[in-house]
Design a protein around this nucleic acid. Sequence first.
RNA 1: GCGCCCGUAGCUCAAUUGGAUAGAGCGUCGGCCUCCGAAGCCGAAGGUUACAAGUUCGAUUCUUGUCGGGCGCACCA
Length: 653
Amino acid sequence: MILALQEWLAAQVRAVARDSFGAELGHVAVQYPPKIELGDIALTAPFDLAKTLRRKPRDIAEALAPALAKLPGIRRAAVAGGGYVNLFLDRGRFARDLAGALAAKSAAAAVPGSVVVEHTSINPNKAAHIGHVRNATLGDTFVRVLRARGRTVGVQNYIDDTGVQVADVVVGFLYMEGKSQAEVEAIPGKFDYYCWELYARVGDFYAASPENKARQAEVLHAIEEGGNDVARLAEHVAERIVVCHLATMRRLDIRYELLAHERDVLRLHFWDRAFELLKQSGALRLETDGKNAGCWVLTMAGEAEGDADRIDEDKIIVRSNGTVTYTGKDIAYQLWKLGRLDRDFNYRRHSTDDSGHLVWTTTSGPGEPGAPAFGHATSAFNVIDVGQSYPQRVVKAGVAALGYVAEAENSHHLGYEKVVLSPATARALGYSVGEDDAIVKVSGRKGLGVKADDLIDALIAKAESEIELRDAERDAVARRRDATAIAVGALRYFLLKFGRSKIITFDMEEALAFVGETGPYIQNGVVRARNIFAKLVADGQDPARLRERALGLDLAALLEGEEGDEVWTLLLLIARSEEAMELSVRSEEVAPLAKHAFAVAQAFHSYYQKPRYSILHAESDDLRAFRAFVVDTFIRQMEALLGVLGIPVPDRM
RNA sequence: GCGCCCGUAGCUCAAUUGGAUAGAGCGUCGGCCUCCGAAGCCGAAGGUUACAAGUUCGAUUCUUGUCGGGCGCACCA
């Protein structure tokens, strides 16, 4: 509702500027004064007009203010600072509109087209670690925001089941442990943990002799070839690990619509088709001499047009031996995502989780009927670490080179920095750390890192002991359930509060914190707010009637004065949630939304903590109704926000 | 060498994308449980936004340069 208000306001400001000065305004920024006394909404239009009109911003503001003050829903307009026009809103009307919008759970208008988001995409050869969880949490949250803002989104998890990493573990099973497929299948317990340890030892095995190292290429070749025992073992390993990954992510409420397998990209000849297209269009060039002789290369034009002397090196897409690089396969996959490859996968049902959510998988065998339409999206987001920026740029350039300029434009790389370990945490995990090391890099190859399931377990254990401290009577099932919700909230918020370009130094103690700027702090606000309503009901009050009564009150009057100002600050912040989500979509960054949720919780905590604003002990029925209305509004918005952040709300905490 | 990212309070991070007196959390110090739950609240101390120029009404934000740190630039994935 606040976005509609802003849009309307912007149009009014443009009209007033036209009437007063005959000037045309482009974008009209709607901001917020640093202090509530200065006004509710700040306009910077006078500064923009000052440039073209060659007059002082302040004079322009003085001229605009009276006309703006006359607008409906605006109480008055004041000129402040160097030339701001600050508007004071009709608070009662605003509050009523906000409550109406929240009660209606009014969804954002549907945006035409569809979006594919690819995230997680962990090599299926070991357990997921904290870095993978950052990827999945970021991707999943972005998907939730997109959906909240009206996009139709399909989530894909790319399974690189024919790559060297899977091959390495297969080498481990076959040549280090001498296991048959039956023996591998018989391995009990957490298979992803087993492979984690095994994978960490393969490096040493390769280093021991050239013969050992030669096994890697041998196995990789057999896997790519398919239809043999080695490939079947690889298939088993990858599939079983994927099941582990899905289970781990499910704990964090992260789901997928499709598991896209690299094996099927190969078997269904996606690349062959893409190669034809790229050759036809002249996007790829066969080098006849020089260091790249015999290779098909893609010319990477400089970022800026006409920047001829800044042309990057050509990127090899097809090697001189005729095999395609990873980047080439990725171009084919990207073309398919965007509906520009006249090939499709076959699909079959993969599994249904405990919530009833169905995941499909690609297959090169016969497909099952009933699959929804995958791919063919108008835009695609690839959640991949920032180290992959260059290959991602190549993929984009490949799409563009085919003449699909819009599609390339709509290919987004949602890059994020890595997660490293604090020395303390690395030591606690038993790794030797140098005295002057500020950080320790995780390394799947060395088995160095915090496994996702271990971390979640530790968080749940911590939450359980915290619950034990305050609520010893709580039965085991409920305690476990709430501890899990707290753990998930803590972990997701911890990973979301950092901007994408920030390296996260993971420290166990910090991640286990439940106080301060954390998920549990936000959850606590909602739990306690709900508790107030529970007490009201226990007191014989009817929340629905309180709400009814509140809407019949003179809200404008109640939103004045000391308590009124404080409530108003909270309501305005709540209303800005819609704006925060939209900003999150536009900036492709979810951290500000997480911070916003925290800010709302903080404003609420500050308000309801004060005994003089008590609801149960309110001085009058009207005041009780008014305050209940505020709490109700907070709960509704917070439930929506936490839903978008994927943070559950415990019953008690 | 070229490209990208980062540098803001003791520590970890924000800053509405060029706006008003740069804000939070942790930590430190001091208060608040006869008061809807203290996983909370209130207050204090803490800043030359790495440095230097420039652009303009206005710069943490844009430009250039310098310094420091990270990553990328494979016929690996």
